[in-house]
Amino acid sequence: MILDLHTHSIKSDDGRARVETYCGWIRKRELQIEGFVLTEHRQFDDESDYRPLEHEFGLRILKGSEVETDYGHVLVFGVNDRMRAAFDFADIDLPLGLVLEEAKRCGGVAVPCHPGRPRVGMCAHFAERGAVDGVRVIETRNGGSRNGEDAAALALAEKFGYRGIGGSDAHLVSQIGRCATRFEGAIRNEDDLVRAIRSGKFEAIRWT
């Protein structure tokens, strides 16, 4: 199953895409992704119910978050009430170690995203302050990366033995599906997603 693991909707301050429009676009353009994860900035959207859209379009629509840490931005999957109580998603100075540890303890998984990006990616911080324990997976294919940023992420993954996921980092409808992650089996819900990421059995894909 192929999922775009990094997307933003109008729930994010700089997101300009409605979820329904994402769905229509994926089907109209016959994109190869079979679903996507909404990773809104600094928040978890527990209000929206996308199940009707899942049924209408035959797509998997899951929810996570993109939080901000002292080592850059981090995707968290498998968000639940325990995790939301463990750290403040709106805090832009979260310690990366805390996010990794608490996400794991609460049954989720944390994945540093666009690590090659200046300031908000992990590479620059690793170079200055050293590595952080607990990282297993990073985003090696990001649709918003500029020249050399994904290459830096791949080099980091190779150096430390991290597995790599892919996500479009879409903020506009037309940006979804630029990158994604191929899993071996079906992903039916957030718990399946966490298990699949923890298993390491996936590969990052870039189409454009």
Binding site: D13, I92, R117, V120
Partner: peptide, 13 residues
């Protein structure tokens, strides 16, 4: 009003 980080570092919007 909100705070975030980006390629530029810390920003208050």
């Amino acid at each position: 009003a909100y705070e975030k980080t980006g390629r530029s570092g810390r920003m208050v919007f």
